[in-house]
């Protein structure tokens, strides 16, 4: 138990030092724009289908779960608004980010871990290049950009999935479903959902690059790095979810002035 706790503290410390290195490289020795866009294209191409499918079903699930209860109150008109708002503000970003931590996070940490254990990272250093500048920074920035984009796409798909279920499962027309969306889903909600997506994207990118870069011990070590990445990312995302919710709650109070 105590050893596990020490491991976690060491991991967090190591991760902070690592991100400091990435940041200083980003400031003083930026990588080329082309290498970032290559990563963006790669990640997006690999993961858009998974994200879209996940988003669609998350939206559909939320509508199914909400519709029975709201029906009891005779307020089916609010179904569209409530389900959409609930999806965009919390459940959507959370579950879609979980998907991405499996897809993007695990993949990247496997890729970097393989480069580490086959000495490719040492080779980069010996050939006079900085591995953080050459391979970590482009991946980090690429993953942040494309995950943010993918999460946003997933949220849009979730609205579609919810709408479809509203029509076929709850039997309300499209007009009725969308009528209350603008009144409940404020622009602040959308902003707060997108803010969550951005934070999750950064958490995801940081953990998988760190874990992959520091992998040791052959094929088994790569496997271990992937498992640790997936678990650490999910836990960090849940905690980040709470932090951002508190943050946007406070922000809303400040904006409303009470």
């Amino acid at each position: 138990m105590l050893r596990g706790l020490r491991g976690i503290v060491e991991d967090i410390g190591g991760g902070v030092v690592f991100m400091g290195q990435v940041l200083s490289v980003a400031l003083f020795k930026p990588c080329s724009f082309r290498s970032i866009s290559e990563q963006i294209v790669k990640v997006t191409e690999q993961s858009w289908l998974t994200t879209a499918v996940a988003g669609f079903f998350v939206g559909a699930i939320m509508t199914v779960q909400f519709s029975l209860q709201i029906q009891q109150f005779g307020a089916l008109g609010y179904l569209g608004g409530l389900a959409t708002s609930g999806t965009i503000r919390e459940v959507g970003p959370l579950l879609i980010a979980f998907m991405l931590s499996g897809k993007v996070g695990a993949f990247t940490s496997a890729e970097l871990g393989t480069m580490r254990v086959t000495e490719q990272i040492d080779a980069i250093r010996c050939l006079g290049a900085n591995p953080i500048q050459e391979i970590i920074l482009p991946r980090w920035l690429g993953i942040v950009c494309s995950s943010f984009f993918l999460l946003a796409v997933g949220l849009m798909m979730s609205i579609g999935g919810g709408l479809l279920m509203g029509m076929f499962f709850s039997g309300i027309s499209m007009q009725e479903y969308v009528r209350h969306i603008p009144t409940i889903v404020t622009s602040f909600s959308i902003l707060s959902g997108l803010f969550k997506c951005l934070v999750f994207a950064m958490v995801l990118a940081s953990i998988c690059t760190y874990k992959g870069y520091t992998a040791t011990g052959g094929a088994r070590g790569v496997g271990r790095a992937v498992v640790n990445t997936a678990v650490a990312t999910m836990v960090a995302i849940v905690i980040a979810d709470w932090v951002t919710s508190v943050f946007s709650d406070v922000a809303l109070r400040i904006v409303l002035g009470d």
Partner: peptide
């Protein structure tokens, strides 16, 4: 290097 360590 012991592995070829080529960038694949």
């Amino acid at each position: 290097f012991q592995h070829p360590a080529l960038f694949d």
